[in-house]
Simulated assay, not measured.
Amino acid sequence: MTSSTDSSVKDMFAQSAAVLSLPSPATFERFERRGGLTSALIYVMIAAVVSAVIAALFAGLHENVTFFGQLFSRLTTIPLGFLTFTGAVYLIGRSLFRGTGTYPEVAYSFALFYVPLSIVSTLISVIPILGWLVMFLISLAMIYFGFLAVQSSMNLRDQTQAIVTLVLAWIAQLVVTGVIGGLIGGLFLMGRAVTGN
């Protein structure tokens, strides 16, 4: 049974389909309070697991990429990147532009488009030439849906404020995930050096 703060995965896939097929701040408004942070994180972990498994299975096709390295990195960086980005959207929107949304609304709204698009992106990424073009188009779609979601979840109807919020959040995500990724990579290399592999 679902409550106003806890939505099932099945419900979220249906809400994702609605958001993707009828993109507008009003569509996001319909769903932003139907789930909470826990629902958003469970949904994002589905994308992380799918991405991790696919990347790990195809790790053997690339030099210096290991099965467990791909598995571990995707399972950590995807949720961390999502939390960092949505947290930055919330803090920047609230601090700089007096946005009135809550963090659970932001996380839930962004999860509704992020999860299906990232799963499609991961599935397409294994196709060499076509994969790059489709991934570029999916990246553009993510930007567009993010623009709509920030307008809805933070109640920032001014387009400039929404764009500035997204750009600053993207920079914050790059910095945080870069630092964490560097630390994880360093630990992985140290482990390989110690074991001699």
Rank of each mutant, 00 (worst) to 15 (best):
Leu156Trp: 03
Leu117Met: 13
Ala169Asp: 00
Ile171Glu: 09
Leu20His: 13
Ser121Arg: 11
Asp158Pro: 03
Gly99Tyr: 00
Val126Arg: 09
Pro128Asp: 07
Leu123Arg: 00
Ala52Met: 03
Thr38Ser: 12
Val115Phe: 02
Gly35Asp: 02
Met12Glu: 13
Ser8Ile: 04
Glu29Val: 06
Gly60Asn: 15
His62Trp: 14
Ala14Asn: 13
Leu166Glu: 11
Thr195Cys: 05
Val126Asp: 00
Asp158Tyr: 03
Ala18Trp: 02
Leu41Tyr: 10
Ile46Ala: 05
Thr5Gln: 06
Phe85Ala: 10
Gln15Ser: 09
Arg33Glu: 10
Ala14Lys: 15
Ser4Gln: 11
Ala18Pro: 03
Ala59Ser: 15
Leu168Asp: 10
Ser39Met: 01
Phe188Thr: 14
Ser8Arg: 03
Ile42Phe: 05
Ile92Gln: 08
Leu57Cys: 15
Pro128Ser: 08
Val9Cys: 01
Ile119Phe: 01
Leu117Ile: 14
Ser95Cys: 04
Ala55Arg: 12
Met154Gln: 14
Thr100Arg: 12
Val134Asn: 05
Val106Thr: 14
Phe136His: 01
Ala172Thr: 14
Ile124Arg: 01
Phe68Thr: 14
Ser51Arg: 13
Thr86Glu: 10
Pro116Gly: 02
Arg94Ile: 07
His62Tyr: 15
Asn155Glu: 13
Phe68Ile: 14
Glu32Asp: 06
Ile78Phe: 15
Val115Asn: 03
Thr66Met: 06
Ala111Leu: 04
Arg30Thr: 12
Val134Leu: 10
Ala17Cys: 04
Arg30Asn: 09
Ile78Lys: 08
Ala107Ile: 01
Ala111Phe: 05
Gly35Tyr: 05
Leu148Phe: 04
Ser118Gly: 09
Leu96Met: 04
Gly35Phe: 02
Ile42Thr: 09
Asp6Asn: 14
Ala107Leu: 00
Leu133Cys: 00
Val164His: 05
Gly182Ile: 08
Val164Leu: 13
Ala26Ile: 08
Asn197Gly: 10
Ala193Glu: 15
Val65Gln: 13
Met1Cys: 05
Val50Cys: 14
Arg34Ile: 02
Ser3Cys: 01
Asn197Lys: 13
Met142Glu: 11
Val179Ala: 09
Met45Pro: 04
Leu22Phe: 12
Ser109Glu: 02
Val126Tyr: 02
Arg157Cys: 05
Arg74Glu: 14
Ala56Cys: 04
Glu105Val: 00
Ala14Cys: 06
Leu148Gln: 11
Ile54Gly: 00
Glu105Thr: 00
Thr122Lys: 07
Val167Gly: 03
